[in-house]
Design a protein around this nucleic acid. Structure first.
Lengths: 188, 188
DNA sequence: CGGAACGTTGAGTGAAGTCAACCGAGGTGG
DNA sequence: CCACCTCGGTTGACTTCACTCAACGTTCCG
């Protein structure tokens, strides 16, 4: 059990868990400013893992230092609490989409969420550095089906290919397709 | 936007969201001691709703009173933060199961989780007061498919029928089937 | 130049969904 | 008291969305 928390400073990472059969579920993509493993504060021994999607810079903070800081600055404690509730809100929406939406809408919503979160941390390019495998594991779909879903999104002129990366060309229609409403991210 | 939070005192409730097409996703079942709508503290205008599964008693607390209490007793703030992280942990596991597990395991895991949580609040009966519709909406499956999954669980002598309610007969095998490990609930 | 990782394709399969009935237990009002 | 209604559960036939498998193409990098 670790004695520190990790903070993502630069880059994109993902939080995931792997099943016995090797299948992976990506729980969240993380951006600058996100704590990667705060949950270990409450659940030191769980199976959740973190991996970099791009190259990352990280910072560490000792648990006891963090606790001391919270004691000293109660508003930090409140901010961390709010961050946890926001994380829960994101998980809820993911659950709705994975549980109740077909592949096209599901992928569209996931992409909208990443665009919104990237924007919030100043990443304004519409080119998203995720592989089809990453998207498959986040959406709960097979790689092959993700690939075909992407082809459909490209056919609709919503996505385009840049070398190996995908680029969102028509964000409006992507959001329309997904019925995306960023309210749950605490954004406009 | 409400000025109070609701605390579930007695009974079972569920947190859910409905799609335009009428489809429902149940995010969580709630038990005595759970706050039903703390998320509104951060996201006052979201679409998440609460409904009673059984008859319920609830308590209300004004947001400003809660904030005052937290200021007065910092450990209450920490406890609420931990509760939010635990909620997030439950959502993560739900996501893993909905995204990556077939119906039988998915339903088995959901039932294991409810048994564990019921036990934690002193509800020791193995009879779970959920309809097949509730389970379907929580597992992200159709009612018809839930029904057939239940028949399979009964055929395996893991579940039985009591009147209209279901009863878990063989908790060991249910947990085995689901590869259930209660660690993510912060329980043994 | 070669290999690894990612992306694409086609064919065949299968798990879960949909539709449309019908059944059965409670509850309720005439 | 019983007819009736409603809600939840069950069934069968059929459909479809997504998965698997196995190959092949492409980009990137050493």
């Amino acid at each position: 059990s670790r004695r520190h928390s990790t903070l993502l400073l630069v880059g994109v990472a993902c939080l995931y868990e792997r099943l016995q059969d090797g299948n992976r579920q990506i729980y969240a993509f993380q951006y600058s400013g996100d704590f990667c493993d705060l949950h270990r504060h409450v659940l030191p021994d769980n199976e959740v893992a973190v991996a970099g999607i791009t190259d990352c810079s990280i910072g560490m903070i000792e648990h006891k230092d963090l606790e001391q800081l919270i004691a000293q600055y109660p508003s930090l404690g409140l901010a961390l609490w709010r961050a946890s509730m926001l994380e829960a809100s994101i998980f809820r929406k993911r659950l709705l989409n994975v549980g109740r939406q077909p592949a096209l809408q599901r992928v569209a919503h996931l992409l909208c969420e990443q665009l919104a979160r990237r924007e919030a941390v100043g990443l304004n390019s519409a080119t998203i550095p995720l592989t089809q495998m990453d998207l498959a594991d986040a959406a709960g779909l097979s790689i092959v089906h993700i690939n075909r879903t992407f082809q459909e999104l490209r056919r609709l002129n919503i996505l385009s290919k840049e070398r190996r990366a995908m680029k969102v060309v028509d964000r409006e229609r992507l959001a329309g397709l997904a019925s995306f409403d960023g309210n749950y991210l605490n954004m406009p």
